[in-house]
């Protein structure tokens, strides 16, 4: 998808970062507000899709040298293994724990194992979406 659309390219350079930030925000806020791993992952992958549409695959690959199949595999593995940890500790498989910790800069913060699980979900979503879109567009 090589074009000469200067406006689109210039706008995208900035917008991509807004989308990425929004995606991370959605991912982190999912515990108490709308968001979460699935939607966060989707927004992040849509940012990448925008990059692919505006620039060409090779250029993007230089900036983000990831094999998205492996990203998806890693995510799926993370989701499964995060549940196994609970089973090893004697809780039912996929039990999640949470606690409140006093961290230096953030103050009292809630930390929970769901984040690890959701990170797995998000990575799988990103990996799968990009794998599918790249597979189809490379097929031309």
């Amino acid at each position: 998808m090589k074009g000469n659309d200067v406006i689109l390219r210039t706008v995208s350079r900035i917008v991509v970062f807004i989308i990425l930030t929004f995606g991370v925000e959605l991912f982190l806020s999912g515990h108490n507000n709308p968001g979460g791993g699935f939607i966060g992952g989707l927004v992040l992958s849509s940012a990448l899709v925008l990059l692919y549409v505006v620039f060409d695959i090779e250029t993007v690959h230089q900036g983000v040298p990831l094999d998205f199949k492996k990203v998806a595999a890693f995510g799926a593995m993370l989701a499964v293994l995060s549940g196994t940890a609970a089973a090893v500790l004697g809780h039912p498989f996929l039990s999640q724990g949470f606690g409140y910790f006093d961290l230096p800069i953030f103050g009292v913060t809630e930390l929970t194992t769901v984040t690890i699980f959701e990170a797995g979900v998000a990575l799988t979503v990103i990996g799968t979406v990009e794998t599918i879109i790249l597979s189809i567009s490379k097929d031309v």
């Binding site: 515990h31 709308p34 791993g37 499964v80 606690g99 809630e110």
Partner: peptide
Amino acid sequence: AGGKNIVNAILGDFRAFDTM
């Protein structure tokens, strides 16, 4: 589950097996 978002508490904790 320590979360105020019921939807995500269901997805990530109560019914995490489905999600996985």
